[in-house]
Each structure stands twice: as structure tokens, then as C-alpha cells.
Computed example of a mutant assay.
Amino acid sequence: MIHYITGGERSGKSFYAQQLAEKLSNTPFYLATARIWDEDFEKRVVRHKNDRDERWTTIEEEKEIAKVIPNKSVIVIDCVTLWLTNLYIDFDNNVEKSLAFAKNEIDQLAQINSEIIIISNEIGMGVHAQSHLARKFTELQGWVNQYIAKKSDKAIFMVSGLPLILK
């Protein structure tokens, strides 16, 4: 089953996803997709780690997320935006290659016998991106979000810490 949780920055997505995972399992997994880009981001990662207690097992994977998900588990994938950033950079800012790779991974996720909680950002709801690369990334993010939402069994939009049920 795929649970899709989306929303803006600091909307409560991660907290909601963690609570859901803890309701579904006493031993949830956390799949971290981020690369540590700078000191500020490293502090954010440490804060997220500290939000999880000893029940959690962390898995780190930057690209091939479907291959590391244990069968019959509960896992939070945090997050699609950082995962797509890795793809976008590794595929030399090629939207088509990034999108094809992402869709293939999502298709694989849909075949896994686990409770998969996917966190993503709605980055296209804010200010219009100023650069060509940023606009293309925003398009990529939007297309991938739509694909995940379509494949998901449940979808939640987080606003100000409150969940809005979409599906």
C-alpha cells in the first residue's frame, strides 16, 4: 500500500508520516534520500534523526529506492524532492531521463508488499522559479507528484500541520 503525503515546506509532512508509521508498526523503517549539501542541511538531517526513537531503522539510498525496501515492512520515504534532486543532478539536468527513472522506481514501489509512506513537496505552489533549471525541476517535481498520487492508495495534503484527505 502506498500512502502519499504532500504539502509545502514545514507543513507537518514528516511528523504526520512518522506518527502514521508508528501506528502501523512497532519497528518502522525510514528511507533517507538526501545528500548532505551543506552545514545547514546537515543540521536539519540531525534534527530529523533525533525525532525518531530506537524503534526506527534508518536506510540511506540516494537513487534506487525500490531495491532497499524490506518486504512486509512499514517505511517512510523522506523525501521525493531530495531524491529527484539527486536524479536531476546525476542525469545532467535532463528532465526526461529523470522522469523516466523516477516513474520506473515508483512502479517498482507499487509492487512491494509493504506499507510505503512517501513524503513529497508541492514546490509549484510558491513563487515562480527564476532560472530555467529551477523551472524545469519544478515541472519534474509536479509530474512525479502526479504519478505518485495516481499510484497511491491514500493521499494526504498537509497544510499548517493539518491533514487534508485527498484520496
Rank of each mutant, 00 (worst) to 15 (best):
1 M>Y: 02
2 I>C: 07
3 H>T: 15
6 T>F: 09
6 T>D: 01
7 G>P: 04
10 R>I: 04
10 R>C: 07
12 G>K: 12
12 G>S: 10
12 G>D: 03
14 S>Y: 05
20 L>H: 08
20 L>N: 06
21 A>E: 13
21 A>V: 06
22 E>Y: 02
25 S>N: 08
26 N>E: 10
26 N>T: 13
27 T>A: 12
28 P>L: 01
29 F>H: 03
30 Y>Q: 07
31 L>S: 02
31 L>A: 00
32 A>I: 06
34 A>E: 06
35 R>H: 13
37 W>C: 04
38 D>G: 06
39 E>A: 14
41 F>S: 08
43 K>Q: 06
45 V>T: 02
46 V>G: 11
46 V>N: 15
47 R>T: 14
48 H>V: 12
48 H>K: 14
50 N>Q: 13
53 D>C: 09
53 D>V: 06
54 E>A: 14
55 R>Q: 09
59 I>R: 00
59 I>S: 01
60 E>G: 02
62 E>N: 11
62 E>V: 15
62 E>G: 11
63 K>H: 03
68 V>S: 00
68 V>R: 00
70 P>G: 05
71 N>H: 08
71 N>W: 00
74 V>A: 11
74 V>P: 02
75 I>H: 05
76 V>E: 05
78 D>Q: 10
78 D>P: 13
82 L>I: 12
82 L>W: 08
84 L>D: 11
84 L>K: 01
85 T>S: 06
86 N>G: 02
87 L>G: 00
88 Y>C: 05
88 Y>P: 05
90 D>R: 08
91 F>A: 05
91 F>G: 04
94 N>L: 13
94 N>R: 09
97 K>F: 15
97 K>H: 15
101 F>H: 12
103 K>H: 04
106 I>A: 01
106 I>Q: 01
106 I>H: 01
107 D>K: 09
109 L>N: 01
112 I>A: 01
113 N>G: 06
114 S>G: 08
115 E>L: 02
115 E>N: 14
115 E>C: 04
120 S>A: 11
120 S>C: 09
121 N>K: 14
123 I>L: 14
124 G>A: 13
125 M>I: 12
126 G>L: 10
126 G>S: 12
127 V>T: 13
129 A>R: 14
129 A>N: 15
131 S>I: 00
136 K>P: 07
136 K>R: 07
140 L>P: 06
140 L>V: 03
141 Q>N: 11
142 G>C: 09
143 W>S: 08
143 W>E: 03
145 N>A: 07
147 Y>K: 04
148 I>G: 03
149 A>C: 08
150 K>E: 15
151 K>A: 11
155 A>N: 13
158 M>P: 10
158 M>Q: 09
158 M>C: 11
158 M>T: 05
159 V>R: 15
160 S>W: 01
161 G>C: 02
162 L>K: 14
163 P>S: 08
163 P>F: 04
163 P>E: 11
163 P>I: 05
166 L>F: 02
167 K>G: 11
